[in-house]
Design a protein around this nucleic acid. Structure first.
Length: 279
DNA sequence: ATTGTCCCCTGCCCGC
DNA sequence: TGCGGGCAGGGGACAA
């Protein structure tokens, strides 16, 4: 589930619990995640103090003393479990043993996530981060930059928004929600995006992400517990996962038959055919 | 360069 | 109760 708001929430939870604390040592139970966890991982992080956290797109950077950073991606099913049990849980791939005696676990059943190391000074030039687009909640993400990225592109608008090089942190859920709020069809050719529509879309993206971060914040503890679910924002989804349900802004049949699902690049898109037109 | 397809992996839910 | 099929929040590797 982790898209920008969930990653932000996880990072805040980690920051609250782990800021300024020292990793006594780390145990890697499985190295083969999305990429191999470096063999030096355990030795490198051991004995270092956690100094700060930064989110970049869907990545979390855990800054350690000695100018070293852990680069973390949760993939589809990654979780950080605070106060984990002494016996590693199923799919617990890394255990951080803190000097106070408690443990922090990285759990990821599907193993699409990643854990790596990067010198703090080299974060920006790391191959996984250097080509990443602007933060959608930051000043660099504007209608003008989005429009420029879409110009001459015949691929669906949805694909542009999922492309982390164009804008960082959006995933399948928030793209659907933002396109709905901006009255734009996910299959609209990107090059057909008009200036006013781009402005509306940028606002919609910002608004939905802010709302979700706030909602995540209210259920912060859930994200970092083993029983954690997706938090409260799922109740606020207007179209995602709601095929067949009424569009919140439609009067209902016969004018609108409700939210539709379509498949693009093998992934589900949800939209209201009455509000979101291709033309 | 751009675009679309396939694949990685495990768990869960549904229908039979 | 068991089993097969489809689906899932991400994103890299390909081929055309």
């Amino acid at each position: 589930m982790p898209e920008l708001p969930e990653v932000e929430t996880v990072m805040r939870g980690m920051s609250n619990a782990l800021q300024n604390r020292i990793i006594q040592h780390a145990t890697v139970h499985r190295h083969d995640l999305r990429w191999r966890i470096p063999a030096s991982f355990s030795q490198t992080v051991s004995g270092r103090r956690i100094t700060s956290f930064l989110r970049r797109g869907k990545y979390i950077l855990v800054r350690l003393s000695g100018e070293m950073s852990i680069l973390l991606h949760l993939g589809m099913s990654g979780k950080i479990v605070l106060d984990s049990e002494a016996t590693p849980a199923p799919h617990e791939h890394v255990t951080f043993h803190m000097i106070e005696g408690d443990r922090v676990a990285y759990v990821d059943p599907r193993r699409f996530g990643a854990l790596g190391l990067v010198e703090t000074a080299a974060e920006e030039t790391h191959p996984l981060l250097r080509d990443m687009g602007p933060e959608p909640l930051g000043p660099q993400f504007t209608a003008a930059t989005l429009l420029a990225a879409c110009s001459g592109r015949r691929a669906p608008l949805k694909s542009m928004l999922l492309d982390q090089k164009i804008v960082a942190g959006l995933g399948n859920i928030y793209v659907a929600e933002a396109l709905y709020r901006a009255d734009l069809h996910p299959a609209l050719p990107a090059e057909a995006l008009t200036r006013p529509a781009a402005g509306k879309l940028v606002k919609a993206i910002r608004t939905v992400l802010r709302e979700a971060v706030e909602a995540g914040g209210s259920s912060l503890r859930d994200y970092v517990r083993p029983e954690g679910d997706m938090g409260y924002f799922q109740h606020a989804w207007r179209v995602y996962g709601r095929a067949g349900e009424p569009c919140p802004r439609c009067p209902g049949p016969p004018g609108c038959m409700g939210v539709e699902r379509m498949v693009q690049s093998g992934r589900s898109s949800f939209f209201c055919p009455r509000h979101q037109k291709t033309g």
